[in-house]
Amino acid sequence: MIWQLDLLILTLVVLCGIGAIMIRDLLGAAILFGAYSFMMCLLWAIMGAVDVAFTEASVGAGVSTVFFIAAVYHTTRRTKD
């Protein structure tokens, strides 16, 4: 585990997480959540959990983002907070 890369990606994960809940647009929140999931996948690849990283890349960053975008498409992008 390379600690510089680990720290950098952990910072990006926190930033993406804060961005995903702060942005005032649900489509933007869905995209930022996809970025968050992908950063999480990189973090697991760094930690040597390659099987978990594969699953997260396909299921977390792929399917979850598609679910969120489908839900936003069926409802509304508007949000107050």
Partner: peptide, 13 residues
């Protein structure tokens, strides 16, 4: 958070 989708994002985080 007040929005239901934001709550779901929080649950996933």
């Amino acid at each position: 958070k007040n929005n239901l989708v934001k709550k779901i994002v929080g649950m996933n985080i």
